[in-house]
Amino acid sequence: MNAVRLIAVFAENKPGQTARITRLLAEANINIRWATIANNGAFGVLKFLVDKPDAAFHQLKQNGVMVTFLEALAVEVQDRPGALHTVAEALAHHQINLDNTSGYVADRNRAILIVEVQDVARAATVLEQHKLHLLSQAEMLQA
């Protein structure tokens, strides 16, 4: 199964908190390929896909940041109408709930969806049955 490892950070929702995290990552020469921030009142959770997850985890932990690893699926789809729908429908058909999803256009005709679900392995099987390509960590970093 191809899955990607994200790092998730717990931070206060205050000016400068995101900058503190990104500065720590930059200092360790870590490249961020994808990021999301979800705020909930006083706190937020930042998620990153980085080129060196272990080094990033270590760097943050060392500096007293609360950090954990998350597994997600990176689904490659065509950059055309209905692409997200294919994925959503495949998962819905198997009663799999999409916890968090975000996407970006990787190049001229390819888009990548980062999909977080409860049961990663099951979702991966379902998507592969629908002939969808799941990127490995290595592929993702080249994408």
């Binding site: 994200l6 998730a8 717990f10 705020n39 909930n40 959770v45 609360m66 690893f69």
Partner: peptide
């Protein structure tokens, strides 16, 4: 205001909202 323990963080903002 209360500090979260390592055991309380799984990366999901929804779980934290529920805990709150």
């Amino acid at each position: 205001k209360v500090e979260l323990a390592e055991a309380g963080f799984d990366g999901q903002v929804e779980h934290l909202a529920r805990l709150q």
